[in-house]
Design a protein around this nucleic acid. Sequence first.
DNA 1: AATGAATGAGAATTCATTCAT
DNA 2: GATGAATGAATTCTCATTCAT
Lengths: 200, 200, 200, 200
Amino acid sequence: MATTSPDRALRVDAQRNQDRIVAAAHEAFAELGYEVTIEEIARRAGVGAATIYRRFPTKERLLHAIFDTRIGELELDIAAATAMPDPWEALLAGIRALIEIQTANMVFLQALDQSGVMLELKDEINVRVFEPLSVLFSRAQASGQIRGDLDPSELPLLIQMVTATAKHTPTCPTPASAVRYLALLADALRTPTPSVLPPG
Amino acid sequence: MATTSPDRALRVDAQRNQDRIVAAAHEAFAELGYEVTIEEIARRAGVGAATIYRRFPTKERLLHAIFDTRIGELELDIAAATAMPDPWEALLAGIRALIEIQTANMVFLQALDQSGVMLELKDEINVRVFEPLSVLFSRAQASGQIRGDLDPSELPLLIQMVTATAKHTPTCPTPASAVRYLALLADALRTPTPSVLPPG
Amino acid sequence: MATTSPDRALRVDAQRNQDRIVAAAHEAFAELGYEVTIEEIARRAGVGAATIYRRFPTKERLLHAIFDTRIGELELDIAAATAMPDPWEALLAGIRALIEIQTANMVFLQALDQSGVMLELKDEINVRVFEPLSVLFSRAQASGQIRGDLDPSELPLLIQMVTATAKHTPTCPTPASAVRYLALLADALRTPTPSVLPPG
Amino acid sequence: MATTSPDRALRVDAQRNQDRIVAAAHEAFAELGYEVTIEEIARRAGVGAATIYRRFPTKERLLHAIFDTRIGELELDIAAATAMPDPWEALLAGIRALIEIQTANMVFLQALDQSGVMLELKDEINVRVFEPLSVLFSRAQASGQIRGDLDPSELPLLIQMVTATAKHTPTCPTPASAVRYLALLADALRTPTPSVLPPG
DNA sequence: AATGAATGAGAATTCATTCAT
DNA sequence: GATGAATGAATTCTCATTCAT
């Protein structure tokens, strides 16, 4: 043949499609949440619906792939935060990274807010995101910057307190309410145990 | 006569079904949220789906009927809270009443958490629940028991911070996590403005 | 017992119900056409739906009973028209009687306008209404008051030409359009055969 | 390559189905009126019901698509009629074109005969069909070929007089009765006002 | 005998997933 | 390999008719 082997040509094409699908799915899930139809994603990607199914056997697996990429980025951000000298600032930076992704992405909000759905994803987020964040939490707590009557395992719920406030303005790229209520939560975390928290 | 009139006899049966429908709907909406099908509710009530439509012309009206009862109870609780002498305790009592109903009922959570759905109900909750709660909030703030950089209009979001933590255990009749994180939030509210909250 | 026998008391009651059902059905069919629900008729009659089914095994049979009464009245009107001295005026009077009933009664319009429904009723109307009207038509034709290229069997279609125009104003007790277009049709009937009608 | 592109190959199949759907819908609406179910149309087309919804988002839009084609043809016929030299013949030709389509199609009859349904379509027919026909009517009237006590706005009702007679034989491709009674109506229209029409 | 209640059989519409080309 | 097309399984809601009291 005149050019590269047809095999390679196809792979280039296929990869381009793969990328467009992922990008379109990302955008669509972010905007519309999990309820978005496969057809809409295909439309945005400029491919046929069946092409999506060639790569991703189900809608959930497509979502999983999106999450995977995002979680990878998040892992990097958290690693960067971990390198910060001040434990409290490190924790806040890590939390901010998570919150930013969530508030920019409707389906991310749904995944952590809603019960009984996307369980597999939740597990993965626990392992890859909340475990390293817990380390930061413990460190800040050990340094006396966080009240003692909280446990690192509560981090998912604490973060949810903040992201829940962003549910109604997820389109805004800078979710002002999330920033505001994270500050409020931070005050609570720093409170030198003035009250007795009932067991969770 | 010794027995009741035939009119009443019929009503007994009908009322039993009516009660079963309401109970089943309550339970199903509480467990599964608004997405539950009428068929599922009918199954739980032991009646045909069309029977539900006899009493409740649409799914939304069925939901509304259940909400209405709950909101009525809530109004009483809030009124009772309003009668408490200490403004701060009054506010907490009112919030607790709302949170208890929300955490016991998935669809109640959805109504307040999700945007673009059940708008009519949201309006009703605003008028019948959040308005009286805002009064309590203002009172507590005027008495110096709540930091000054918060506004009563933020009450829905603040409450959402707490209820969001109960999303994953809404079936539990005593939502321990909600109680715990309400206490945490209370600490934040009472903080004498140690940090500057960014605008929401 | 103090009053009449319970047997007779019941029959009086039953007859009153029967009358109310017929009256309500008449009114409801007249206003809303055949699409009216049995429940609506029952509501207007002040009885339960099942009571209607006790007397009339199906909705169609109920309709039939209504028609039966109306057709009886119509027979009388036509008989009266038949007694009129002038054949042309007699025919017009008969036609007017039919048209009045039709235009005052939506379901009557439907029965004659629509194909494939209420076939049994159509047959009955043919026998009890159109046959005597045809006699009047033939008489008027024999007296030279109607053009010769029409046949008495066409009477149903000719009348339909008029009633069709009343479809959109059937609520009006005096259907002005029907009167107007009956006059127009009358001109056509009286035309001394100026054109050659193609076969129908 | 010898064969067409795969793009086009697919479209051939789809187009065949599309054609079958339109043909089946046309036929079914013509035979059974608007009450025909989508399922029945799908059955006749040999496809699943959902396939119809792929092309036509609602039943009404499917109907509209079919109407649209017919009305387009009708517009051409009326334009051709308008070009005829004799105003009376032009009007008759225009009316005939409309009547032919109506009598061949039950749902077309329903659209004009029944009140309160297919309002959007009625509007479109008014603009695209009755307005140009009214011009023809006025012209014929101005030329003295139509009695003066009629108004162009009565055209819909006048035509309904004719089509109503075809209601019971709408499947017949050549609606003999409509032709016959149009001729009868024509005589009435041409009558040099021998009677006084009551107001409609 | 009377009735309100109950329901089964639809009807329109949607969407994740599979198939034919 | 890719794709538009096709569809089965749901879901909400309606109504003539039957049933339990």
